[in-house]
Design a protein around this nucleic acid. Structure first.
Lengths: 364, 364
DNA sequence: CTGAAAGCGCTTACAG
DNA sequence: CTGAAAGCGCTTACAG
């Protein structure tokens, strides 16, 4: 029943050698793949990653520390970000952190207490700091961190400071695509609900919407743009405002899913069918997008993958600084987004003129 | 600036060999002293301890785990649980896991693929398995795990199998309290939307609702109970059904927040104000509860704390089995829940008779 | 781009 | 009661 006699093997976990054997390479190569070192052939890397996946391999933190001795502490500063976003973000951080032997130190701050929170984090000796929204746009936080010369990654900001690291999607391009999608469906009056003014991603998304309108030669009335600040509450008011317009839009593009969900609620309150009478699309693909009905067509932002990348980037930067190498090659990373089509969009009921495009079977 | 040539030594900390040399014994003897083993002569022990003190020696945790080897792998099997629940659950698992040197292996299954998923997990050599809802109630999964003699913790089930470990809240008592709360507000006709029939927590919550109705001597018409299965979609239908009743309820208690949110949506669609015209309360306190408007009064289930406890429990069990100690003392833990009052409940518009109770300032 | 060797600091399993 | 040997799972430093 027990182990064979001599074996010291206590745990059942697969080791780096198991993976190596499985992939037909040396342990050293596996080590390189785990640590995301660049000098491994793509094909080899793929084989190793496959072996890792099928074996459910996870490196032993103990062995890594003992052997390499590299062990970072990364701070995550956050403040009332959407719970949807933040939990996905955290899962990514924790996951990558355990892979790279980074301990994550979570610190929450309120509006105005950023400085104290940063102070606390630094006293706890973190080697770098992650800034999920909206902190990546906070001048206060950014300044303070820069003054202390601490490596920083801003995640999901529209425009990251030059000196910091960042991981984002191309918000402008994504919003552009979504708006074009709406146009292709046959919509001529497309409303937009903006995000919070203090986040650079908001401006990017708005710009993308405007670019598309211009390219499609559609009306860009100012009244078609309603101000929101990313919360469900603000979406309620903004949607109300848009639907009360003399010439109401046939489609509303909200800068995030919370506000899109609010728009659906307002439409329902007014007896409008979505998407029959009104098309509503969001942005982020948060859990909310697939919880409500109809499920939201939206832009998928791969939050946890971005978080993983952010941790990786930060660890590299810290390492680079230690060896006083030059800085990183690509400090500003762009992650892939995706337009995911679900049940909340359709061609407008009465298409003005325009040739009929792909008309979708009405949902609900 | 760099290390001296040959040395791999990164830290400056004294090692067990330094102590041994200093005390004039072998490292093995030092190890014995550190671990308080009995078979060391008093005089030898004294010398070692002195060396430890003067060198400020502290054993390396990493080396000990590596050599001694307590490091578990815990599997998390999940299947379309609410994203809200699952991400909070995962955060708790990961956090506690890193504290206790447990690696979490996540495996997703679909309806019908439980067995294959378990097979895969075991091939991945996990030492124990966590079962978040609805898997803690899956006979298939439970049987398979039991047959393989793998330690299991079921989380958030209404009734865990005797042989397994479990962490839950008292669903029945919580539902009872919520229903009493509604009664205290002055509601006389209280509707209930059930959870999925295949989850034991659903029956518990329903039972709690009925207990309270009985204790308050309120009508327990069968028509007041509508069937849901925890999804927003099902909540939409159930709420519709309840509000179409000839004698509609003045309050609806949904067995989770998703369905409560759906009920709010239906109420709005019918021009009803919440909580002015209809009180709606939920269960779980998921992120959704504070996203929509009005924010939901609900039962807070401390999911991530429960996950932490579950990991801890499982680790103890695995350890106990290894040393073939007796099983754990308290294999079935009850976590504390909390009724959190927000904006979705109020006294009914026209209280039938009943003395007026604490009337709340109407929200929105 | 890939691998063989040595070693991180400790403990288990044996042998005296 | 004490010690010499081997090995935990990984990484660094070299070598090709």
């Amino acid at each position: 029943m027990k182990e064979s006699r001599g074996s010291r093997r206590q745990r059942n976990a697969p080791t780096i050698s198991d993976v190596a054997r499985h992939a037909g390479v040396s342990p050293m190569t596996v080590s390189r793949v785990i640590n995301a070192e660049s000098n491994v052939r793509a094909e080899t890397r793929r084989r190793v990653q496959e072996a890792i996946a099928t074996l459910h391999y996870a490196p032993s933190a103990a062995a890594r520390t003992l052997a390499g001795g590299e062990e970072f502490r990364l701070g995550v500063l956050h403040t009332n970000s959407s719970l949807f976003y933040f939990s996905e973000f955290l899962v990514g951080c924790l996951d990558q952190g355990s892979r790279q032997n980074c301990t994550m130190v979570i610190e929450k701050c309120e509006e105005g207490t950023e400085l104290a929170a940063i102070e606390h984090l630094l006293r706890g000796r973190v080697d770098g700091v992650l800034l999920p929204p909206p902190l990546g746009d906070s001048a206060t936080a950014l300044e303070a961190l820069r003054a202390r010369d601490v490596p920083v990654v801003a995640v999901s900001t529209g425009r990251a400071p030059e000196w910091a690291l960042s991981v984002s999607i191309d918000d402008r391009k994504a919003a552009y695509e979504m708006t074009r999608h709406l146009g292709a469906l046959g919509h001529r009056r497309i409303g937009f609900i903006t995000g919070a003014a203090n986040q650079t991603a908001s401006a990017e998304r708005l710009a993308g919407y405007r670019d598309a309108l211009a390219d499609m030669a559609l009306a860009a009335d100012e009244e078609l743009v309603a101000e929101g600040w990313f919360t469900y509450r603000s979406g309620l008011d903004a949607a109300e405002q848009l639907l009360e317009l003399a010439e109401a839009p046939s489609a509303v593009f909200a800068a995030n899913d919370d506000m899109a969900a609010a728009t659906v609620a307002i439409a329902h309150r007014r007896g409008l069918d979505v998407p029959g009478d009104l098309t509503v699309v969001g942005f982020d693909d948060s859990a909310l997008a697939t919880t409500i009905w109809p499920e939201l067509t939206t832009i998928r932002q791969p939050v946890s993958a971005m978080a993983r990348t952010a941790v990786d980037l930060l660890a590299r930067e810290i390492r680079a600084r230690k060896t006083s190498d030059a800085g990183l090659d690509h400090p500003h990373l762009l992650a892939d987004y995706q337009l995911v089509r679900r049940q909340s969009d359709a061609a407008p009921r009465r298409r003005p003129n325009a040739a009929p495009r792909r008309v979708q079977a009405g949902a609900v």
